[in-house]
Amino acid sequence: MTVPAGSAAIEVTARGEVDARMRAYAEEKVGVALAVARDPIMRAHVVLGLRHDPAVKVPATAEATVDVGGTVLRAQAAAPSMTEAIDELESRLRRRLTQLQDRTRTRHRWTGVEAEHEWRHGDVPRRPVAWYPRPAESRELMRRKTFAAEPLTVDEAAYDMESLDHDFFLYTDNESGEPALVRRLPEGGYAVQGGAGPEAVAKSAAEVVLEPPPPRLTDDEARARLDSDSEAFVFYLDAGSGQGRVLYRRYDGHYGLIVTG
């Protein structure tokens, strides 16, 4: 395993019946990906998960969270086998580390980048992980996250979303001051909804589609909409406060909630 000098050891956490051989393989492969980093690796944590359920087509998951000189990157993958999940994780993590090194950033913006076309289309979609089929009446809100991040442009929000390997990213638009959400499109590129208007989208270097404004809903209405639809999340404005919120479905069948501060 080769990582930048002075880097932290790779911590591997296993959930489910993940054997020692796969844990060692993950450490080796993530170490190979980390070798492209120029800055010290302050922390590298890998989580492997395996579900033994014949009905689940992609039972193996692999996630990595890496602190590269103070910048947090994240990559995740899902596959039919643990070996495939780890191999895909290495590829996704290597891509993020390469982007971090090759792109000049000013307040998270990419400028003068040789490989700029790569990010304009977004990342290669991950194979979806099946949600645990928990009955709607037994689902609970298991995680609530509130953030008060500095306002961002569409490009900056897309960059942060890609760095964290998320499929969507809730943020505050830097021009309107209103909640906005950027998400990946299955066919490539991005969609933005909320505070970012046509002018903000026109300024973006990415391929961005402007979607209709988010609805005003109560939390109960958002939950009912999520339960009745096949979407993974609902972006909405709180009916009372106008606060931006994303209610999403966790892989364990419960809910998570992200709120703008």
Score class of each variant (00 low, 15 high):
A37Y: 04
A158W: 02
L226E: 10
V3W: 04
D219L: 15
L170H: 03
R103G: 13
P198W: 00
S241N: 11
I41R: 01
L237K: 02
N174H: 06
V259L: 00
D252K: 14
A14N: 09
R120S: 03
V182I: 15
Y251T: 09
G240Q: 11
P151L: 11
E187Y: 05
E137M: 03
H45C: 06
R95S: 11
T111P: 00
A191R: 14
E84W: 10
E231R: 13
V201R: 02
L257H: 05
Q243D: 04
A60M: 06
P215Q: 13
R139A: 13
V234H: 04
G112F: 08
S81M: 06
S204L: 03
A85V: 12
L185V: 07
P80A: 05
D173I: 04
T98I: 14
Q76D: 05
T153F: 02
A85Q: 11
A130C: 12
A9C: 03
Y132V: 09
D39S: 08
Y236N: 06
V56W: 01
L97N: 02
A24Q: 13
P198T: 08
H52Y: 12
E11S: 06
P179N: 04
S176N: 05
M42S: 12
S228L: 06
G6W: 04
A75E: 11
A8V: 03
A148D: 14
R143E: 09
K57S: 15
A60S: 14
R223K: 15
G49P: 09
P54C: 15
E11K: 13
Q99L: 10
P135F: 02
A115G: 08
L164C: 06
D160A: 07
A196V: 10
T146Q: 11
Y190M: 10
Q99T: 07
E211A: 15
R183Y: 04
I41G: 01
V182S: 01
T2F: 08
V259S: 00
A62L: 11
V259K: 00
W131C: 05
D160V: 12
E178K: 03
F169N: 00
A24R: 14
L226H: 12
R103K: 05
P54N: 15
R74L: 09
L34H: 00
L181T: 00
G194T: 08
I10G: 01
A205S: 08
S204M: 04
L257D: 04
A239C: 07
V154F: 07
E156A: 15
A8H: 01
G244Y: 00
G70T: 11
Y251E: 08
D53S: 14
Y159F: 06
V192M: 08
